[in-house]
Design a protein around this nucleic acid. Structure first.
Lengths: 195, 195
DNA sequence: AAATACAATTGACAAATATCAACTACTCAT
DNA sequence: ATGAGTAGTTGATATTTGTCAATTGTATTT
């Protein structure tokens, strides 16, 4: 919980009262998820928002052929949820599961709504999160339509080395929208170039 | 200006006072942009947020070879800006120009900041916009990494027919991240299938 | 330590998409 | 109405990426 409070203070300058801290402590419930366990399954409605304090997770869809397509990774200090399902109450097309044993703080939609209305710092935090999210999303879209597979991988290496280190290569390939074999070959070529 | 007020009322239930309407009217400046004229050029800092009341615009980057890559279209009731540059004050890598003669309402960053703090309805509207934007961005990312070129085009036809009608085919191709020739062939095949 | 399962690599080939060039159709300005 | 410029189409070919299958490497379980 302490790591979460630090996170909040880092992203908002607005002070938080003792009383507000208590509110937060009651609304956010700690939870442990073991490797390969699901936080959300396709077909469910995403009722919770989760803040990762330790561990690594991924959000992905599964197509007709059973192939997984990873849309998001999450590690410490990241939020996980299917935003569409969470905000709209719609049925989710995604799965979220843990790749490492994970501890997180999870809040129910109703409490989140309440928290945002009653605690100014959390409203600011939300706006800040949305802003960052929007910027990151635009970058990823731009990368997807302008860069080749190799360029996207190098871009990821530069901007998100933590993901590349903590998730296996076939998941990185899925995130980049390419086949595992292609990523393997790209890495080999990039390596040869540096000889 | 009236179309803008209708838009606000459509997306927020929070009432707006006469005084607030005046504030809005002073902060948002009407502007006309003729076809092919720039609203933002690469290298500039995006100081304004624009709401399109009439017309059609696009946001795009230009690569080393001079090829344009369109990241966003905008028509009536859409907002245009380079979010990254606008929020962070960074130099923009994008151009925004008009494809049709356009009329818009434009607000300076400082006024926007002020407006969001002083008018509750605008805070709600901003949160709502961000939410929708996040959902749309996630869908586009998912489409980019999971769908083939043809599927992406059909998806666009279904979900954003207005864009397909108002922008030329080579721009649609750019938005989808494919070459104009490939889009031309995709359309031919799709047409043949429906014979 | 052996056995098993899964991840990564590699090769051969297929499919998708890009590139280049030629041609046609259309629009717009004069 | 004419000519210039641009958008769209089509064909030939090159490049990129995917698919399938076999192999190797690596970690985990027993």
């Amino acid at each position: 919980m302490e790591t979460f409070f630090n996170y909040i203070r880092r992203y908002t300058e607005h002070p938080i009262s003792e009383q507000e801290l208590l509110l937060l402590q009651n609304a956010f419930k700690p939870r442990k998820i073991r490797k390969r366990q699901y936080l959300l399954q396709e077909g469910d409605i995403c009722r919770h928002l989760a803040f990762i304090t330790k561990g690594a997770m991924r959000q992905y869809s599964v197509d007709d052929k059973g192939v997984e397509h990873i849309v998001q990774f999450g590690i410490e200090d990241w939020w996980m949820s299917d935003r569409e399902s969470f905000e709209l109450g719609s049925v989710s097309a995604y799965n979220i599961d843990a790749w490492e044993d994970t501890t997180l703080l999870q809040i129910h939609y109703d409490d989140w709504w309440e928290i945002r209305n009653s605690i100014p710092a959390m409203r600011i935090l939300t706006a800040e999160m949305d802003k960052r999210h929007a910027v990151a999303a635009q970058k990823r879209i731009h990368a997807a339509i302008t860069l080749t597979a190799e360029e996207r991988y190098l871009d990821m290496l530069r901007h998100q080395p933590a993901f590349v280190q903590r998730f296996p290569q076939n998941m990185i390939a899925s995130y980049l929208g390419i086949s595992p074999e292609t990523l393997s070959r790209i890495r080999k070529q990039a390596y040869l170039k540096n000889e």
